[in-house]
Design a protein around this nucleic acid. Structure first.
Length: 284
DNA sequence: TGTGCCCTGGTA
DNA sequence: TACCAGGGCACA
């Protein structure tokens, strides 16, 4: 855990690295949390920001003390922490959330919004610049997950399934990919990246996506998600390291730069208040 | 189906 | 110093 924490600190100090946790990052964070917390007992929970306090008020914080962490799982971009009484902590990093690990006696970190102190003297802290991340406590049997589509990396997620989910939608395909009911776990970055990879225009109307294009898109989604390098927390967005390790974004945040396939300048448009980056020449 | 909102650090 | 980014939900 110490080693991972050092890696995280290094990653955060490196400005060109994305701080947006998408599915691979959440999966990795979940595994780190699992390794640090399962089998351990919560001594105390501290909430350090009013936004987190709304999600995890004082009575919930108190209920957590003394509970032992039995299991940690991920569903879409949610982390689900099951406790010994069957209650579940639901965690969503939103845009800037992240775990940090250390000793319960450590000083409060920059941007630390909450801290779970464990009875063995360690801690797991929620670091979250924009304070959008939430931790919620659900009593046993009361966790109600939102309506979620299939996991994009599951074998059940096929072109046919995607096309079926898109069949009644008239919104642009890019916006549909962000809808967690269509596919669970894709965020704004990977939606742009997958469409570039599949050579599909982000503006294509969802229900006009052909069977062949849906197959291509599913494969592209897997490609961009699996490009996140194992053993690293962050997907490198831009910069020399990203280029060298083939983890660079192809279009995201690259407005005006040449398309890696055809050298046409990458365009940026806004779809449903979100930025979309794409190549108008090779994405049809 | 579209928009505003929650937030704050980084940038123009 | 004002503005912008964005996940997901409430609401129109």
């Amino acid at each position: 855990v110490d080693k991972v924490d050092r890696q995280l600190r290094f990653a955060r100090a490196t400005s060109h690295i994305s701080d947006m946790p998408e599915l691979p990052e959440v999966e990795h964070a979940m595994q780190q949390f699992r390794a640090a917390a399962v089998g351990r007992t919560i001594a105390r929970v501290r909430v350090l920001h009013k936004a987190l306090e709304r999600a995890l008020p004082a009575d919930a914080q108190q209920k957590l003390a003394g509970r032992t962490i039995r299991n940690v799982e991920r569903r879409a971009k949610l982390q689900l922490v099951t406790l010994d009484d069957g209650s579940i902590i639901e965690v969503h990093f939103k845009m800037t959330g992240d775990w940090s690990f250390g000793a319960a006696t450590d000083d409060i970190e920059h941007r630390e919004r909450g801290r779970i102190e464990l009875s063995d003297g360690t801690r797991v802290s929620l670091i979250d610049g924009r304070a959008f991340a939430v931790m919620r406590l659900h009593p046993p049997g009361e966790l109600a997950l939102p309506d979620l589509g299939l996991e994009p990396l599951s074998p059940e997620f096929t072109g046919a399934v995607l096309r079926d989910a898109l069949a009644k939608r008239t919104i642009p395909i890019k916006q549909a990919l962000l809808d967690q009911k269509v596919v669970s776990g894709l965020g704004n970055i990977y939606a742009s990246e997958a469409l570039w990879e599949a050579k599909i225009s982000p503006e294509r109307v969802s229900n006009k996506v052909t069977a062949a294009a849906a197959d291509t898109l599913v494969a592209a989604i897997r490609t961009v998600l699996e490009r996140a390098p194992a053993g690293r927390y962050y997907y490198e967005g831009t910069g020399e390291t990203a280029e060298a390790t083939d983890t660079a974004w192809r279009v995201y945040d690259r407005e005006g730069e040449p398309c890696a396939r055809c050298k046409t300048k990458i365009k940026r448009i806004v779809q449903g208040t979100r930025s979309t980056f794409y190549c108008a020449k090779c994405q049809k």
